[in-house]
Simulated scan of single mutants.
Amino acid sequence: MNEIEVELRVLKAETKLDALREAQAVVNAVQGNLNQRIEDLAVKVAVMEAKPSSHRILDGSATLPKPAPQLSLSSDPDM
C-alpha cells in the first residue's frame, strides 16, 4: 500500500509540473505578443512624431497642408 501511495504522489507531482510548464508557455506567448504590439506602437508613434505637425491629425482639427502653387509653362512673359 505504501508503494502505491508513493507512486500516486509522484504521478500527482508530475501532473502539476506539466500543468505549470503549459501555463508558463502560455504566459510566455502572451508576453511575447504584448511586447511585439508595444514595439509596433512605439514605431508608429516615432513615425508620426517625425512627420511635420501639419500632417498630423490628432483630434480632427488639423488640416492637410496646402498644395504647392502651380507653375505656368507659358512662354508669355506677362503671365
Rank of each mutant, 00 (worst) to 15 (best):
M1W: 10
M1F: 14
N2A: 13
E3R: 08
E3I: 13
I4E: 06
R9Q: 10
R9S: 00
K12L: 04
K12S: 11
A13Q: 09
E14I: 03
T15D: 00
T15H: 01
K16C: 00
L17T: 11
D18S: 05
A19M: 08
A19W: 02
A19T: 09
E22L: 07
E22C: 05
A23Y: 02
A25Y: 03
A25I: 03
V26L: 02
V26R: 06
V27T: 05
V27D: 04
N28M: 02
N28Y: 04
N28V: 04
N28G: 02
V30R: 05
Q31K: 02
Q31M: 02
Q31A: 02
G32I: 03
N33V: 03
N33Q: 08
L34S: 04
Q36T: 03
Q36S: 07
I38P: 00
I38H: 05
I38M: 02
E39K: 06
V43A: 12
K44R: 15
K44M: 12
A46Y: 09
M48C: 00
E49I: 05
E49G: 00
E49K: 15
K51M: 15
K51F: 14
H55Q: 10
I57W: 00
I57V: 12
I57M: 12
D59G: 06
G60Q: 07
G60E: 10
A62T: 07
A62C: 14
A62W: 08
L64C: 08
P65R: 12
K66Y: 15
K66I: 13
P67F: 08
P67T: 13
P69C: 11
L71A: 14
L71Q: 09
S72M: 10
L73V: 09
L73Y: 14
S74Q: 12
S75C: 08
D76H: 11
D78F: 15
D78S: 15
